[in-house]
């Protein structure tokens, strides 16, 4: 039996394979319907020129009603971008990944949003509470309850 989440992800994957991803986003691996990797780079003028990051999506059986767990990969020499909303363990504080997730969004839509979040960054710095957060951060960023007050991103 194929669940709703698997069917929906299969459709998204089929679209990625036939239509390709938007510029700067590339599919690295999608061997199953639980974990996908993408590379993401910011095109044009930005603070992240020539940097390439790896994004990890983890899906549960509630997708797309429940949001995917999205974070930057920080193992095997990969680094999370230095950004006021990205913790050094790869966790991202972005409302669309939490309480503003909508099931009409897709994996590619999330990639594009994060790409533009990086592109609009004005100063490369870690979140102020980075050290304290990563000391106790749960493995799954969805278990963190972020508060989003910055509307500029």
């Amino acid at each position: 039996m194929s669940s709703i989440s698997a069917r929906r992800l299969a459709k998204e994957l089929a679209e990625i394979h036939s239509e390709g991803c938007p510029v700067g986003i590339n599919l690295v691996k999608a061997d199953d319907f639980t974990c996908w990797w993408f590379t993401i780079e910011v095109m044009g003028e930005s603070l992240y020129q020539d940097e390439k990051f790896t994004l990890q999506f983890r899906f549960d059986s509630g997708y797309p009603i429940s949001s995917p767990a999205v974070q930057f990969v920080v193992t095997d020499g990969k680094q999370a971008p230095i950004h006021p909303h990205v913790y050094s363990n790869g966790h991202i504080c972005a409302s669309i990944l939490g309480n503003e997730w909508s099931p009409v969004l897709s994996v590619v839509a999330v990639c594009v949003t994060l790409q533009s979040m990086l592109a609009s960054c004005k100063e490369k710095q870690r979140p102020v509470d980075n050290d304290r957060y990563i000391r106790h951060a749960p493995d799954n960023p969805k278990k963190t309850q972020f508060h989003y007050d910055d509307d500029t991103v």
């Binding site: 006021p84 979140p127 102020v128 106790h136 309850q145 972020f146 508060h147 910055d150």
Partner: peptide, 21 residues
């Protein structure tokens, strides 16, 4: 107290981070 709830503020944008209810 700090350990009981992981709370922190972003100085510039008032982002609070909690990982407890």
């Amino acid at each position: 107290q700090v350990r009981s709830v992981h709370v922190s503020f972003h100085k510039d944008d008032n982002t609070i981070v909690l990982d407890s209810e």
